[in-house]
Lab assay of single mutants.
Amino acid sequence: SFNTVDEWLEAIKMGQYKESFANAGFTSFDVVSQMMMEDILRVGVTLAGHQKKILNSIQVMRAQMN
């Protein structure tokens, strides 16, 4: 498990989005775990492969939080 959203993004090789997530207010796992595709688009993730990777990881995160 990760301590910060930045660490999580690095771990899934999506570190290039750290600033975008932070600027959009997605700075805690409570918020990130609620993200939908529209949120991912809003933070500027436009590549389908990256969207899928982030969404898949969020689903895993949700499962671990319950």
Rank of each mutant, 00 (worst) to 15 (best):
I54A: 01
A48L: 12
N66P: 08
E38V: 11
Q64S: 12
K13L: 11
F2V: 08
M37N: 05
F29Q: 03
I40N: 00
Q16R: 11
E19L: 10
G25C: 05
F26P: 01
S57H: 11
G25R: 04
N23W: 06
F2I: 10
Q34G: 10
T46L: 12
N56S: 13
W8E: 00
S28V: 04
L9G: 00
K18D: 02
G49K: 14
Y17I: 01
D39L: 03
Y17R: 02
A11E: 12
G15C: 06
M14V: 03
V5E: 00
Q64N: 13
A22N: 08
E10R: 05
F26R: 03
D30K: 13
R62P: 04
H50I: 03
A11D: 12
Q34V: 09
Q34I: 09
D39M: 03
L47S: 14
L55R: 04
G44Y: 01
G25W: 03
R42D: 06
M37W: 10
F26W: 08
K13T: 10
T27C: 07
M36R: 14
Q34Y: 07
S57P: 01
V5P: 03
H50S: 03
A11W: 11
Q16W: 05
L47G: 07
I40D: 00
S33K: 10
G15E: 09
I54D: 00
Q64L: 11
M37H: 10
Q51G: 05
Q59M: 15
N3M: 12
L41N: 06
A63N: 15
W8M: 02
M65I: 11
K13F: 13
V5I: 10
S20R: 13
M37Q: 10
G44F: 02
V45M: 02
K52I: 15
K18L: 05
R62I: 11
I58D: 01
V31Y: 07
E19D: 12
R42A: 14
Q59R: 12
L41H: 08
G49R: 12
K52Q: 15
F29Y: 04
N56A: 14
Q16P: 05
V31E: 11
Y17K: 01
A48I: 14
N3L: 11
R62G: 11
N56D: 15
V45D: 01
D39A: 03
K52M: 14
F2H: 09
D39V: 02
D6C: 06
G25A: 04
K18I: 10
K52G: 06
Q64K: 10
I12C: 04
G44A: 03
N3D: 12
A48P: 15
D6E: 11
G25Y: 04
M14H: 02
I12M: 10
T46C: 07
K52E: 13
I12L: 13
F21C: 02
N66R: 12
V32D: 01
F26G: 03
G15A: 09
G44K: 03
S20H: 13
E19R: 10
Q16A: 09
M65Q: 09
S28E: 07
Q64D: 12
T4Y: 06
G49T: 15
D39W: 04
F29V: 07
K53I: 15
S57W: 13
G49W: 13
K18Q: 06
Q51I: 15
F29D: 01
N66T: 10
F21W: 03
I12Q: 05
A11Q: 10
A48N: 09
S20K: 13
M35G: 01
L41E: 13
A11I: 07
D6P: 09
L47V: 15
H50C: 03
E19C: 07
E19I: 09
K13P: 01
T27F: 06
A63D: 15
E19H: 11
F21K: 00
M61Y: 05
K53R: 13
A11Y: 14
Y17E: 00
A63L: 11
M61T: 04
K53C: 10
G49I: 12
V45Y: 03
G15L: 05
F29E: 02
V5F: 03
V5Y: 03
M14P: 01
E19S: 11
L9A: 01
